[in-house]
């Protein structure tokens, strides 16, 4: 099967049981997306599939022939700088997921027919699929808010 990751086309031969997350981490050496739970319960594995944020641990890679995926390694987005400025992480393990999720979330808000106002409460609800056990939440929200305000 073919998979385009961060703009590069890869041809992969894998066990059909391989998830997108394991394909990235174990077959392509792209370990930016993290495995926190492997069951859709934490958001650490969030990547952008055709531009939309998804949990890569619950997607079988075989279903994605020809699809295009962006991982944190392929991003250059202002929110990354804001995470540094506002200390939007501690251990960093949830961070790639938080970043991919916030990029996807900002895009969802922008492309909405009736764009929502991204208040702090709205950002928090929309980002709740990304757990952070270190508790960097207020800092993450601050980082996203400043990007959203642009």
């Amino acid at each position: 099967m073919d998979l385009v990751v961060n703009g590069d086309r890869h041809t992969l031969e894998m066990d059909p049981r391989t998830t997108l997350l394991d394909a990235l981490r174990e077959h392509l050496g792209l370990t930016g997306a993290k495995k926190g739970c492997d069951h859709g319960q934490c958001g650490a594995c969030t990547v952008l599939l055709e531009g939309r944020r998804v949990n890569s641990c619950l997607i079988l890679a075989v279903t994605l022939d020809g699809a295009s995926v962006t991982t944190v390694e392929g991003l250059a987005h202002p929110v990354q700088e804001k995470f540094l400025e506002h200390d939007g992480f501690q251990c960093g393990y949830c961070t790639p997921g938080q970043i991919c999720s916030s990029v996807g979330m900002l895009d969802e808000a922008l492309s909405d027919d009736d764009p929502p106002e991204l208040s702090d409460a709205e950002i928090r609800e929309r980002m709740s699929g990304n757990l952070c056990r270190c508790g960097a939440y207020p800092n993450i929200v601050r980082a996203i808010r400043e990007v959203a305000a642009r």
Binding site: G40, G43, T46, R52, R53, V54, N55, L58, I59, S101, G104, M105, E108, R126, M127, S128, G129, N130
Partner: peptide, 9 residues
């Protein structure tokens, strides 16, 4: 229900 990511899937 669920999360933004899961609802996209």
């Amino acid at each position: 229900g669920a999360s933004g990511q899961l609802r996209n899937m």
